[in-house]
């Protein structure tokens, strides 16, 4: 067999194994109806909560592109937040797979090593697609209107999913690196809450104190939220000096960067069982 043919065979084998494990992870989701329902409802409840708690207070701080409606500002932000939250199952899932010996079983099989991880992150991507879709549908029912065409809306959804997929790799790393079952939830929260709360997800960053503003303006969740806002509401929704294209590219660059750092780290953690 030539090197190229062997390589192609390796790729197709990895693809098949990834498919098998993705299916397994999705099935596990469907087989836990209570978890499925709660994890679907939770983002919608969060959205309603923020909509009605913050909605009245900050009408005045909104850019004109929000057309005076907090919901128009909130929905793109909340989609970015849900993309981040929706990556947490990768951490729990891989942690459980390790403690239940399933990762060891996978590692004893003649399978593509990476499939245990890609099967996990892909399953979460599919799950996230359904959750963000639902959230958007509820948002539209409650009065969210996009002002940048259907292409803008779909691109926004795409960017949110890409960003969430990148976060799944970070979570995969966390799930494998933190060995203690009690610590794992704390580790997830320590990433997810500070990153979403100190971003432009809920409020424009100008409302924050100066020192926090500097961080908030430059962190990845803000980049994602800005990109989604630009793509759904147009340039008018963005801080001065930002353009829709540049913000979308910045969010994708963050996603690529997060993958580039955490995918190899996660693979290394997967191998670490060896010592």
């Amino acid at each position: 067999m030539s090197a190229a043919a062997a390589y192609a065979l390796g790729i197709s084998r990895a693809a098949i194994h990834t498919g098998v494990i993705t299916r397994r992870n999705l099935l596990a989701n469907l087989r836990l109806p209570d978890v499925l329902i709660l994890s679907t409802i939770q983002p919608v409840v969060f959205m309603l909560m923020f909509l009605y708690v913050f909605g009245g207070a900050i009408q005045t701080a909104l850019p004109p592109a929000a057309h005076g409606q907090y919901i128009n500002w909130l929905i793109p932000g909340i989609l970015a937040q849900s993309a981040v939250f929706g990556s947490a199952p990768a951490a729990y899932g891989l942690h459980n797979d390790r403690t239940n010996g399933i990762l060891d079983r996978f590692r004893s099989l003649p399978m593509a090593r990476s499939a245990a991880l890609t099967g996990r992150t892909l399953a979460d991507l599919i799950r996230n697609t359904a959750i963000l879709g639902l959230q958007l549908a509820v948002g539209i029912t409650l009065g969210f209107r996009w002002h940048n065409g259907l292409t803008g809306l779909l691109s926004a959804l795409g960017v949110a999913l890409i960003f969430g997929f990148a976060c799944s790799w970070l979570m995969a790393y966390l799930g494998l690196a933190v060995r203690n079952s009690e610590a794992i939830q704390a580790a997830i929260y320590m990433v997810v809450f500070p990153m979403t709360l100190t971003s432009s997800v809920f409020l424009p960053t100008q409302t924050m104190p100066g020192w926090l503003q500097a961080f908030a303006e430059h962190q990845p969740v803000t980049a994602a939220a800005n990109a989604l806002r630009g793509l759904t509401l147009g340039q008018g929704a963005l801080p001065a000096g930002h353009t829709v294209t540049a913000d979308a590219l910045l969010a994708i660059a963050w996603a690529a960067g997060i993958c580039a750092v955490f995918a190899p780290l996660a693979v290394r953690e997967l191998r670490r069982g060896l010592d």
């Binding site: 397994r24 099935l27 596990a28 087989r31 239940n100 010996g101 399933i102 060891d104 079983r105």
Partner: peptide, 10 residues
Amino acid sequence: GQFAAVDDHL
């Protein structure tokens, strides 16, 4: 292995 490594939900 020493402890059954099977997937409960499947």
